[in-house]
Design a protein around this nucleic acid. Structure first.
Length: 219
DNA sequence: ACATTAAGTGATT
DNA sequence: AATCACTTAATGT
């Protein structure tokens, strides 16, 4: 194991030592491979065969649903401590991915080979808990997204999107273009620009080229 | 200085 | 709220 791996291993232990029992931690270190990915990189594409499951301990990734050729929508985000829960079924059934996953902020994760994750479900209680909780959590996030789509107007949805992003990254200044927001929310850039202007007039944000500063985090 | 890319705007559906 | 057809502003080379 080289230097980089040792640092990653430490970070992994920091994040997961309270989640998994010691024996499992050791096993993960033994069979998983540690890796880092840069912001903007494609982690999983639609149609990919999933051979490994990532356990994220640094950075964030967004899970995107594609509809038709240029329709796309961000479903939810993965944070440290998360895994790509939907891919478990994919792995066990050896199906192809129906989502795209893109790194939002530089990410570190340990990738577990598929054949082992199934075994662990029966051998490790903490693993089973983690997977079940993970599924539950994803389902809740998905519900939140659906609620947003069905019962909230774009104005509020966009503001929520921005504040969520701030919370995830712990940075009040976001590096995004109106076009990127439009893509994530499956709308047009012009519409985003107009809402951004409204939000700015309301004093909730300050927007400049490529940057949006979120001023009031509450509400 | 020039080209490229991001953002603003009015009109139309 | 989407699309078009611009204009204006910011940035890279």
């Amino acid at each position: 194991m080289n230097n980089k791996d040792i640092i990653l291993k430490e970070k992994f232990i920091n994040h997961f030592s309270k989640v998994f029992e010691e024996k499992l931690i050791q096993e993960i270190i033994k069979v998983g491979h540690f890796n880092t990915m840069k912001s903007g990189q494609l982690l999983i594409d639609i149609g990919d065969d999933l051979t490994h499951i990532p356990l994220i301990f640094e950075g964030t990734a967004k899970v995107i649903r594609h509809i038709k050729i240029d329709g796309e929508l961000v479903l939810y985000y993965l944070k440290p401590g998360d895994t790509c829960a939907v891919s478990f079924i994919n792995c066990i059934e050896s199906k192809k991915s129906v989502f795209e996953v893109i790194i939002e902020t530089d990410m570190s994760a340990v990738f577990i080979p598929v054949d082992i994750i199934d075994e662990w479900l029966v051998t490790y209680k903490s693993w089973r808990r983690y997977i079940i909780d993970s599924y539950h959590f994803r389902l809740m996030e998905m519900l939140e997204s659906i609620d947003g789509l069905a019962f909230t107007n774009l104005h509020e949805r966009l503001f929520k999107y921005l504040t969520d992003k701030v919370k995830r990254n712990n940075k009040k200044i976001l590096q995004v273009t109106h076009q990127e927001l439009a893509n994530d929310m499956n709308t047009s850039r012009v519409v985003i620009s107009r809402i951004i202007k409204q939000l700015q007039d309301e004093g909730k944000i300050i927007s400049t080229r490529n940057k949006i500063k979120v001023l009031d985090i509450n509400t």
